[in-house]
Design a protein around this nucleic acid. Structure first.
Length: 878
RNA sequence: GGGAUCAUAGCUCAGCUGGUUCAGAGCAUCUGCCUUACAAGCAGAGGGUCACAGGUUCGAAUCCUGUUGAUCCCACCA
């Protein structure tokens, strides 16, 4: 068989993905003999495109799912997409604008028709991209948050919550996005630091030449001012309380009121009160029963009620007002200050506090069990540092504004009659009936125009993907799938959406699922570039994941991403990681090539080969145990690194090197090759979750006559670990390393065999193995009293002498002697410290027994080493 | 403004309830090698006052206090 020297992922990956799909390996069906292991995907935006964050996130999920599958669990990974109300609607609006169509010219129905067309055309690309990554999702279960049944469930949830008194409609100050023209929840507002101009404006007292100066960063709201507020304890203004001032521009007289809320030290200590456009002002307005003037329109322009600058954009107006006020000598000064300005998470528009009718979920009571479950580790956050953040949020949770002034989404199932009475139900008929039964007007019944926040559908995701009727019918009436797969096991997501999504899913789990929706929440970091900047389109610092896959192969990109991303830590992405991943792929490929292509002989195995097998098998088991352990703790990058070292160092560098025959022409014993093949198969299994494609490819190339597939083969079973053999292995490696170092320092060719000696022969069980790996001739017995030129390798149990090659001068030997004199000093100091410790009564009394033992052992080891060095200093030639 | 987390080799990170064979790994760097699996490789090497200052202790990278610096979350400072 001809095998390329370098592994080429391109020809391999598509083939195996198609094969796995064809064999339906990703599909999970109820099997009561198996335990279910379930993950629901964090549904990406339906119109989204795969970015590095998705890559990281989904790679982790795939690793978990593939390993679970191999562990014999019934692994089920449910994929799907999210309708992403604001983001998608914005995209559709833009698409229409490009075609010269305005949203405002369309009816709701027509707009939705376009939106669905758009979704059908561009939606779900991201799922196709996930396939390139190797994601083993059960595609037959693909869900969309606006599938008919999923939407039904959302409405059911709304109706149910309303019935239970957890939903209300209120006229409240909310965050308004003037670009998306919709309300946002608190969580959708991102505060960014900005340099703002703090304008000091003069408000003249009524019929007076005196004025109060007021500082504001939003002069465009001046027209909506209804009062000026000062602190009652402020000596400067005390005598003015109750008087009136004239609002500039509109020349309206408003009262001066007093409230302790005012910070005397900020600005001028006087605040203009604009109840419609500031949350704090709104509170003041309520408290002092002030009128409300709405000065802005929903698209961020100056409203009619403002009385001036009508129709002007808010930012243009700000400039103009500053200019006009300055011209009229009404500006005392302008300062530049740093403050935080709220932006829309989706459209990046500067948020306006806005007064409007919205729907809210009362969060306080329903979040209690969800808080408990995390505090009691029933739901585990990984890493657990997020528990604090979670706790803080949950304890201070605010009501959730769930209405959005959009069309793309689930329309709120609420109806109004001509009197503004509300019926919460799905259909017109039900609404009519409700109004009738309650003796209310049935005139002009209209459905609420608003849709629900996207998160109001995604918080049901784990509950409804298996049975969308559970919300309505309760879990006791749920279908078999739900009963088998729910609750899910692990959730892998970004900490950014801990509150948006994770917390709310847990809440929903307790509301409708009778408990937690998942057990472990693995929080990934954010993918940043190597300068630590968040990857973003605008910065152009995000590589296209598909390009990376194309360049390095999916396996390489997968491990590349995981090499350096512990849970909760941001990943500073560098393409170097992919290079490392590619090199690793190649290493695995070449290990396979060696096993596959070496000459085979019918000879019995050599001793060093048998030893190599023994040593490696044991090492493999120790590492497997370790790796399993790391998986259990979700320390995935450590598990990967251990696997990497096991394969590269222990298998390739030590084991494969050790079994090579002295002469190529000898060939390798068939028995050794067979054994090696078995060992390599185990390696492939351990590698498979990380690198599914290359491992499946090699698996099949190795077992030409075998029909088995790696993806569904069993994870390697752990056998007993022999600690003693491990010790031997480690000490042998140390010996070999020291000999190699010696060779390297003297620039001795690897081909040159060195002579070695040892006083005793009974400890030489692994001598052949050592000779093989460090290029030594067969060992000879050291004559008592003979002088030595060269190097002494000293371990606690044995001292080995490497002869200096004839052509090298004895100067080298003198240097060795010097080195050992230094080491002797260090060891003596070390012994001293160990002994001080051991003679310290308080240490002996307080230390744990096993620690004491360890210290005693150290003492012994050091002693014997000192003796050995002293011994060899005597016989080494100067 | 409140809260949380963190600071260990050039980079990314391990170091569990304090124990000196505990200062580590991978990458990068340097040196020598194209040795019939692999130069996408092999064999070696160098690199750290564990942010700073105190303290507790027989013993501190690890615990405590303070300082400095970074990150994140929350919050209506006009």
């Amino acid at each position: 068989m001809e095998l390329a020297k370098k592994y080429d992922p391109k020809t391999v990956e598509n083939k195996w993905y198609a094969y796995w799909i064809e064999k339906k390996y990703f599909e999970s069906k109820i099997n009561l003999n198996k335990k279910a292991y379930t993950i629901v995907i964090p549904p990406p935006n339906v119109t989204g495109v795969l970015h590095m964050g998705h890559m990281l996130n989904n790679t982790i999920q795939d690793v978990l799912i593939r390993r679970a599958r191999m562990l014999g669990l019934n692994a089920c990974w449910v994929p799907g997409t999210d309708h992403a109300s604001i983001a998608t609607e914005a995209k559709v609006v833009k698409m229409l604008a490009d075609r010269g169509i305005k949203k405002s010219d369309l009816s709701r129905e027509d707009f939705l028709k376009y939106a669905w067309e758009w979704k059908e055309k561009y939606g779900g690309i991201i799922l196709e991209q996930l396939k390139k990554l190797g994601a083993s999702c059960d595609w037959s279960r693909t869900k969309f948050t606006m599938d008919a049944d999923m939407s039904e469930a959302v409405l059911d949830a709304f109706i149910d919550l309303h019935k239970r008194g957890f939903i209300y409609r209120g006229y409240r100050m909310i965050h308004w996005d003037p670009i998306g023209k919709t309300a946002l929840s608190d969580e959708e507002v991102i505060y960014k630091e900005a340099n703002s101009q703090l304008v000091y404006v003069k408000y003249y007292l009524e019929n007076s030449k005196d004025y109060i100066c007021i500082a504001t960063t939003r002069p465009e709201t001046i027209m909506a001012d209804v009062a000026v507020c000062v602190n009652p304890n402020d000596e400067r203004y005390k005598q003015l309380i109750g008087k009136k001032v004239i609002v500039p521009i509109v020349n309206r007289a408003v009262p001066i009121i007093a409230d302790e809320y005012i910070d005397i030290t900020f600005g001028t200590g006087a605040l203009k009160v604009t109840p419609a456009h500031d949350i704090a002002d709104y509170e003041l307005g309520l408290k002092y029963k002030l009128p409300i003037i709405i000065g802005l329109t929903e698209d961020g322009k100056i409203s009619k009620d403002a009385g001036a600058y009508i129709g002007m954009d808010r930012f243009a107006c700000r400039k103009q007002i500053i200019k006009d006020l300055t011209e009229n000598q009404l500006v005392e000064k302008i300062e530049t200050i740093k403050n935080k300005v709220g932006h829309s998470e989706r459209t990046d528009a500067v948020i306006e506090p806005y007064l409007s009718h919205q729907w809210f979920v009362k969060m306080k009571d329903i979040s209690k069990p969800a808080l408990q479950s995390v505090l009691e580790h029933d739901v585990k956050l990984i890493p657990d540092k997020f528990i604090n953040t979670y706790k803080h949020w949950m304890e201070n949770v605010k009501d959730w504004c769930i209405s959005r002034q959009l069309w793309w989404g689930q329309r709120i199932p609420a109806w109004y009659n001509s009197n503004g009475d509300i019926a919460v139900c799905k259909t017109y008929q039900e609404a009519e009936l409700y109004f009738q039964n309650n003796k209310l007007s049935t005139e002009d019944i209209k459905q609420e125009e608003d849709v629900l926040d996207t998160w109001f559908s995604s918080w049901l995701w784990p509950l409804t993907v298996f049975d969308s009727s559970v919300i309505k019918n309760g879990i006791s009436n749920a279908n078999e799938d739900f009963k088998y797969y729910y609750p899910t096991n692990d959730l892998v997501t970004a900490p950014e959406i801990l509150f948006f999504w994770v917390a709310r899913m847990i809440i929903a789990g307790y509301l409708w699922g009778n408990g937690k929706p998942f057990t472990n929440v693995y929080l990934t970091g954010i993918v940043r570039d190597k300068l630590g900047r968040k990857m973003s389109k605008s910065l152009g610092n995000s590589p296209d994941p598909l390009d990376l896959i194309d360049k390095y192969g999916a396996d390489a990109v997968r491990v590349g991403m995981l090499f350096s991303s512990p849970a909760g830590n941001d990943l500073l992405f560098d393409e170097e990681y992919c290079v490392q991943g590619r090199n690793f792929s190649n290493k695995i490929w070449n290990a396979f090539r060696m096993i596959k292509t070496y000459e085979v002989s019918e000879k019995e195995p050599n001793l060093y080969q048998l030893q190599a097998i023994e040593l490696f098998e044991n090492k493999f088991n120790i590492e497997l145990k370790n790796i399993n352990n790391l998986f259990d703790k979700f320390r995935l990058n450590d598990a990967l690194m251990s696997t990497y070292k096991l394969v590269w160092d222990d298998f390739c560098s030590w084991y494969l090197e050790a079994i090579k025959p002295e002469n190529f022409s000898e060939g390798i014993s068939r028995k050794v090759i067979e054994k090696t093949t078995m060992l390599f198969e185990n390696i492939l299994k351990v590698l498979h979750p990380w690198m599914p494609f290359i491992t499946e490819e090699i698996w099949h190339l190795m077992k030409e006559d075998n029909q088995s597939d790696l993806i569904v083969s069993e994870w390697v079973e752990l056998t007993t670990v022999n600690e003693n053999t491990l010790k031997i292995y480690n000490s042998l490696q140390q010996i070999v390393a020291q000999i190699r170092e010696y060779r390297s320092s003297l620039v001795i060719s690897p081909k040159e065999k060195l002579l070695w000696k040892e006083a005793k022969t009974e400890s030489g069980a692994y001598d052949e193995w050592i000779e093989k790996l460090s290029g030594l001739s067969p060992k000879t017995l050291l004559n008592a009293g003979a002088a030595i030129s060269g190097k002494a390798i000293i371990t606690p149990t044995r001292t080995i002498y490497i002869d200096l090659p004839k052509h090298l001068s004895q100067v080298v030997s003198g240097k060795e002697k010097e080195k050992y004199t230094q080491e002797l000093e260090y060891l003596k100091g070390f012994l001293e410290s160990v002994r001080t410790k051991l003679s310290n009564e308080r240490f002996v009394q307080n230390a744990k027994p096993e620690l004491l033992e360890k210290e005693k052992q150290k003492e012994q080891d050091t002693l014997s080493k000192i003796r050995a060095i002293e011994e060899q200093l005597k016989i080494l030639i100067d």
